[in-house]
Nucleic acid binder design. Structure first.
Length: 521
DNA sequence: GCCGGTAGCCAC
DNA sequence: AAACGTGGCTACCGGC
């Protein structure tokens, strides 16, 4: 194993090389939805019992940029910590296992999350090949365009300033140029005028400099976050980028990716999408990307048991068009693009616990129109309406909501006995309670697929390996000659990961890089 | 120089 | 006033 790979000890634990208490520690204590104070208390007690001078992990390895890897700390110093850690985790194990048992989560833990640890380790170790030369050239191109844009901005404003400073930018726009902050002077939480993109959008008619600033923002973001940062993350031993996946980093059960985050590589704009050209397959290979189509809405249809929505998915209809037809009360073949766009916004908002007001922010509907729209929506999908009400009730009464596999999220704020809870905080918690089982169930399902996929590939004698997971998408590196059967197998495994009341649908694409992907049968 | 908070923005 | 969920990264900025 490359000794320069990050988090060596975590990777070892994930591969089962390290004793189980440590791998247990890296996950379980954090993973339990309600890490109790008893947990911390037990740990301090156990530490105090040890007849060695203990230090904390932070004292050993430092923090921030000075942080060492465990391998860089002398054995003699690490040993007491390691002993204590193992000892403590060992004694914690039965207690936390009991807790899992009582929550009916032992299966989720033992049969999904723990086995997934080594799957994720394999993906991290595999890494993904990066065309650094291409990124560096793209960076120089962005640099040139940024220099030009900045020159124009300074000329139009009359002096230079730091465009990246929101404070300086606000002073230029709202004080010097006298632009009027729209929407009744929206301010940030600290009381300054906001210069966020949606605010600037409303100002672009008033002064040509605003468009230039939006352009500067886009380019500066791509340069600093992607074209400049990614090449620095290439491992010199493997010549590839090795992300880290966290199984405990989200409240819903999603994975999180960091160092670098490969779950937020641009795709929306043409320029941003160019970044993906740098993610390339090894010689003789292609990248194969398979994603779930509308998995969250399918989960809503299943969980809400909504007849109309289930039927739409069973017939493989265009769900947004079907929704539009239902809400506008017209036949499917006369749905206009505009009607479909609005229906899509509602379907999208549904998963986020949206309100009619929220809808006015993502569409051009007035509040009254949005209210009518939502009413019509629930009229046509009564199962969905009941489901949303049920979720709110359960979250408050039971104190938590659950995913398909029993993953929990607690909502103490919604307890009827909770005191001093603002309406804003309550509404937010309700939206979180609505979204969590949907987003979390999607995470459950793709994790099941990821767990089965390596075995299925082996069984079929296919050499492809999983490299990346992006919430509803798996990216594999696949020998060119095995593309067709691999695509078929991956799609089968993903579709069959869990049987819902509606079919799961997947789309497969492949290409030499992550930008130019052609559909695969 | 380190650290944490803030603003902004990339993805699903 | 805010108003649509989940993350991570970068730059700025003020405090130490």
């Amino acid at each position: 194993m490359g000794h320069n790979l990050k988090y060596d000890y975590v990777v070892l634990a994930r591969l089962g090389v390290m004793p189980s208490p440590l791998s247990f520690d890296t996950m379980l204590a954090e993973w339990l939805c309600d890490p109790s104070s008893r947990n911390l208390g037990l740990k301090s007690l156990a530490w105090a019992r040890l007849d060695v001078e203990m230090t904390t992990i932070q004292e050993l390895i430092g923090s921030g940029r000075n942080q060492l890897s465990m391998a860089e700390v002398p054995i003699a110093q690490v040993a007491p910590y390691a002993v204590a850690d193992a000892q403590i985790c060992l004694s914690l194990m039965p207690i936390l296992k009991d807790e899992l048992q009582s929550k009916n989560q032992l299966g989720l833990f033992d049969e999904l999350e723990m086995p997934l640890v080594s799957v994720l380790a394999q993906m991290e170790i595999a890494g993904v090949r990066l065309d650094t030369g291409f990124l560096k050239e793209l960076s120089r191109e962005l640099e040139r365009r940024l220099a030009e844009i900045e020159k124009e901005i300074f000329k139009q404003v009359g002096h230079s300033f730091n465009i990246n400073s929101t404070q300086q930018l606000a002073a230029v726009l709202f004080d010097e140029l006298g632009l009027k902050p729209p929407g009744g002077a929206r301010r940030t939480s600290s009381g300054h005028y906001s210069t966020a993109a949606d605010v600037l959008e409303e100002l672009r008619e008033l002064n040509p400099v605003v468009d230039r600033i939006l352009e500067q923002r886009e380019l500066a973001k791509l340069k600093s976050t992607y074209t400049d940062a990614l090449p620095q993350q290439v491992n010199p031993d493997t010549q590839r980028v090795h992300t880290s996946y966290s199984q405990t980093g989200s409240v819903t059960g999603r994975l999180a990716s960091s160092d670098p985050n490969l779950q937020n590589i641009p795709i929306r704009t043409d320029l941003g999408r160019q970044i993906r050209r740098a993610f390339i397959a090894a010689p003789g290979h292609v990248l194969l990307s398979v994603d779930y189509s509308q998995i969250e809405l399918r989960i809503v249809a299943h969980t809400a048991n909504d007849k109309a929505m289930i039927q739409a998915f069973k017939q493989d209809q265009d769900i947004h068009a079907t929704t539009a037809a239902a809400v506008f009360g017209v036949p499917a073949d006369v749905v206009s693009p505009e009607m479909r766009r609005r229906a899509k916004a509602v379907n999208f908002g549904l998963i986020y616990g949206m309100s009619p007001f929220g809808l006015t922010r993502t569409t051009d509907l007035t509040l009254a129109e949005a209210q009518n729209f939502v009413d019509a929506y629930f009229e046509r999908f009564p199962g969905v309406r009941n489901y949303l009400e049920e979720i709110r009730r359960v979250a408050a009464q039971q104190g938590y909501v659950e995913t398909l596999l029993g993953r929990r999220r607690y909502f103490p704020l919604l307890d009827p006995g909770a005191t001093a809870v603002s309406a804003v905080a309550r509404a937010r918690a309700e939206r979180e309670a609505i979204n969590s089982p949907i987003q979390g169930t999607a995470a459950d399902i793709i994790k099941l697929a990821m767990l089965h996929l390596p075995d299925e590939l082996t069984r079929s004698g296919l050499a492809a390996r999983m490299l990346l997971q992006v919430h509803d998408e798996l990216v594999l590196e696949c020998p060119v000659k095995e593309l067709k059967p691999t695509s078929a197998l991956v799609q089968r495994v993903m579709r069959d990961a869990f049987k819902l009341k509606v079919p799961l649908k997947t789309d497969a694409k492949s290409g030499a890089d992550w930008a130019v992907m052609e559909p695969v049968a």
